[in-house]
Computed example of a mutant assay.
Amino acid sequence: MLVLSRKTNESIIIGENIEIRIVEVAGKSVKLGIDAPRDVSVHRKEIFEAIKEENIQAATKENLVSLVDFFKNQNT
């Protein structure tokens, strides 16, 4: 893990097109500004983990079987 120190209004660059800027530091809270292309998803980690878990649940065998049955019935 790379650990960097930055002050307000300083930033880091990831790749060639993602910039993360320190917008504000207040007590134990840091506000970040993220400038990234629209095709790059940016989520808080807890939201990302929730989305990933929902996708896993949606892809369970029971749901896939139901989906296959659905499409079979569409062709009849």
Rank of each mutant, 00 (worst) to 15 (best):
L64M: 12
L67G: 06
K7N: 06
N55I: 12
I13Q: 11
I51K: 07
P37Q: 12
D35F: 13
I51P: 01
R6H: 01
A58I: 08
K61V: 08
K72D: 13
E62N: 05
I47N: 14
V65Y: 03
E62A: 13
N55C: 08
R21T: 12
E46N: 14
N63G: 08
N63C: 05
K31T: 13
E49T: 08
F70I: 09
T8C: 02
E53P: 00
S11H: 09
P37G: 07
S66T: 11
E19R: 12
I56A: 13
T76V: 15
A36R: 04
E49I: 10
G15I: 07
N75W: 14
A26G: 04
S66A: 14
L4A: 06
V68W: 02
T8W: 00
S29F: 04
F48W: 14
N73R: 15
K45V: 14
Q74G: 07
Q74T: 04
S5Q: 07
E62F: 11
L32A: 07
Q57I: 09
E16H: 03
S5R: 08
N9S: 07
E16C: 00
V3Y: 10
L67D: 12
E16W: 00
E10W: 05
A58R: 12
A59K: 10
V25G: 00
I56M: 09
V68F: 07
E46V: 15
S11Y: 09
V42I: 15
V30F: 00
E16P: 00
K28C: 06
I51D: 08
E16M: 01
A58N: 13
E49K: 12
A50Y: 06
I13A: 05
I12Y: 03
G33N: 03
G27M: 04
L2P: 03
N17G: 00
I12G: 05
R6K: 15
K72L: 14
A59S: 13
S5N: 06
V23K: 10
A26I: 11
T8D: 05
F71V: 04
D39A: 14
K61H: 10
K31P: 02
I18G: 03
I14M: 03
L2S: 13
K72T: 13
I20N: 01
H43Q: 15
A59V: 01
T76P: 14
G15Q: 01
F71C: 04
F48N: 08
V23Y: 06
V3A: 11
N9Q: 08
V23T: 11
P37Y: 09
V68K: 05
G33H: 02
N75S: 15
K28P: 11
S5C: 01
N9M: 05
R38C: 10
A50F: 05
V30W: 02
G27E: 05
E24S: 11
E49P: 02
R6P: 00
I22M: 00
A58G: 13
Q57E: 11
V23I: 12
K31V: 07
D69C: 03
S11K: 07
N73C: 04
G33K: 06
